[in-house]
Each structure stands twice: as C-alpha cells, then as structure tokens.
Computed example of a mutant assay.
Amino acid sequence: MSAGPRRSFAVLGKRLAVVAMALASTVPLTLTAAAAAPARAAACTGYVGLTFDDGPSGNTSALLNTLRQNGLRATMFNQGQNAAANPSLVRAQVGAGMWIGNHSYTHPHLTQLNQAQIDSEIARTQQAIAGAGGGTPRLFRPPYGETNATVRAVAARYGLTQIIWDVDSQDWNGAGSDAIVRAAARLTNGQIMLMHDWSANTLAAIPRIAQGLAARGLCSGMISPQTGRAVAPA
C-alpha cells in the first residue's frame, strides 16, 4: 500500500474518533435534560393563585419583569378603562405568560348599580381586553370584592367565573413588604391571594414571596374557570 492511502485511512480514523466522542457527550446531556423536567414538575406539591388588580399601569412593566425573574405567573384582573388606554401593556402581560381577568371598566361599587349598568361595566371590559390583545377573559373579580346575585348573574351571562380571594395582602391598605410576605406565607394549595398592580411594596415583596412558596413546594398556578381554585397551568 502506498503512503497516500495510509494517510487517508489515518485521517478517516481521526475523524471517526471525533464523531464518536461528540456522540458520547451529546447522549448523556440529552438524557439529563429530559430527566430534569419531571424533577422540576415533581417539586410542585400544590398550586396557588397570585392575582394583581387594577392594571395595567405605569408599574406593570416592572411587575412583569420581577414576576418573570422569580419564575412566577399570575392572573391580572385589569380594569377595562386601563386596558383600553394601554393596549401594549395588555399584550406585554400575555407575552410574559400571565392570565387576564375582568375587573370592571371603571371600578365602581357594582352592588350599588342597576343591572344595565353592571352589564355595561362587564361588557365594555370584555371588549377592551379583547381589543387590546388580551383574549376574552373567563374570570371576573368584582371591585372591592362586593357582589350579589345580580352581579353574579350578569358575569355568568358573559361566561365569567367570579373570583374573590382567600388571602388579602392588604397592600391597598398600606401594608409593608414584610406584612405582604407574611400574608403569602398563609397560602395553601388551591388558594388565591389578592395584590395590586400599582403597589411598590408588593413589587418589593415578590422575590421573598417566590422563595417562601418554593420552600413549601408551592408553585404559582392558573385559576380554573370551572372550580375557581388555583391549579397547575394548562
């Protein structure tokens, strides 16, 4: 055999060795990644519903960034008038993986309104959110948590499930970040917490809320329109 063929076989051998090494390193990495996904899922022993009322606002972008940085998703109960005025922020909420709910158009005391006025508040908000790119909400939170049979009936006519809350952060009442973190510590599987889009104290509390939930095996979930409880994201 001449020197030429011998050199060709030598080069071919080196190339095959490189390919074999690459395959050997790739297969374990692929298996490791596949095995890691169930491990992350198994870490969630329950789900809670984090909710933020009254947006979108000038605080929304910072809120979304903080939620994403801490691996949290939430339901944003938007006012219709705010959604109509800030459609890009509604789209940002959706883009960040949040769910959008109806929180009336002007945030009135619905129980003091007649049926036609309640209908207008809910209908205009459905239209404003959909028009802003937020989809058609399936969840409804009455302002101040005030409701009655008429409010519930009108909401149901638009295919909306009324959502109140189990834990009140009291951020609307000036609660500090420490108090908000303590409130989140009371959440149990399936429960829902009330917070507000505009609260600086709530924004500051989010990293510690995330840490506290993770330490207890709780993950942020979606709110089921069927049960009104927090469940694993679909």
Rank of each mutant, 00 (worst) to 15 (best):
A3R: 00
G4R: 13
R6T: 03
R7Q: 12
S8T: 15
R15N: 13
R15M: 14
A20W: 03
A20V: 10
L23Y: 08
S25R: 15
T26M: 09
T26L: 15
T30G: 14
L31I: 14
T32E: 10
A33C: 02
A36S: 04
A37G: 03
R40E: 10
A41Q: 03
A43C: 11
A43M: 06
C44R: 00
G46W: 01
Y47Q: 00
G49S: 06
G49M: 05
G49E: 07
L50M: 02
L50V: 01
T51H: 05
D54E: 04
D54T: 14
P56L: 08
N59S: 13
L63S: 02
N70Q: 05
L72K: 07
L72H: 05
R73G: 03
M76L: 03
F77L: 06
F77Y: 15
Q79I: 09
Q79G: 14
G80T: 04
G80S: 05
Q81T: 14
N86V: 00
P87E: 10
L89C: 09
R91D: 03
A92S: 10
Q93T: 07
V94W: 03
G97I: 12
M98V: 02
H103I: 07
S104C: 09
S104M: 12
T106N: 15
H107T: 14
H109C: 12
L110P: 07
L110D: 11
Q112L: 15
N114Q: 14
Q115C: 09
Q115A: 12
Q117K: 15
Q117V: 13
Q117G: 07
I118H: 08
I118A: 11
S120H: 14
S120D: 14
E121D: 11
I122V: 05
I122N: 05
T125L: 00
T125E: 04
A128E: 04
A128H: 06
G131T: 06
A132Q: 04
G133M: 02
G133S: 09
G134C: 13
R138A: 09
L139I: 13
L139T: 06
P143T: 14
P143E: 03
G145E: 06
N148I: 07
A149E: 13
R152W: 09
A155M: 04
A156D: 13
R157P: 10
Y158C: 05
Y158P: 01
G159I: 01
I163G: 06
I164P: 12
V167T: 02
Q170V: 09
D171A: 02
D171G: 04
A175F: 09
D178I: 13
D178A: 15
A179N: 13
A183P: 02
A183L: 08
A184Y: 00
A184F: 01
A184L: 05
L187Y: 08
L187N: 10
L187Q: 12
G190Y: 07
G190M: 13
G190I: 00
Q191R: 11
Q191I: 06
M195C: 13
H196E: 01
W198P: 03
N201F: 12
L203R: 02
L203K: 02
A204E: 08
A205P: 06
A205C: 11
I206P: 01
P207A: 09
I209E: 03
A210H: 00
A214W: 00
A215S: 12
A215T: 05
A215Q: 08
A215F: 08
R216D: 07
G217M: 13
M222P: 03
I223H: 06
S224F: 03
V231L: 05
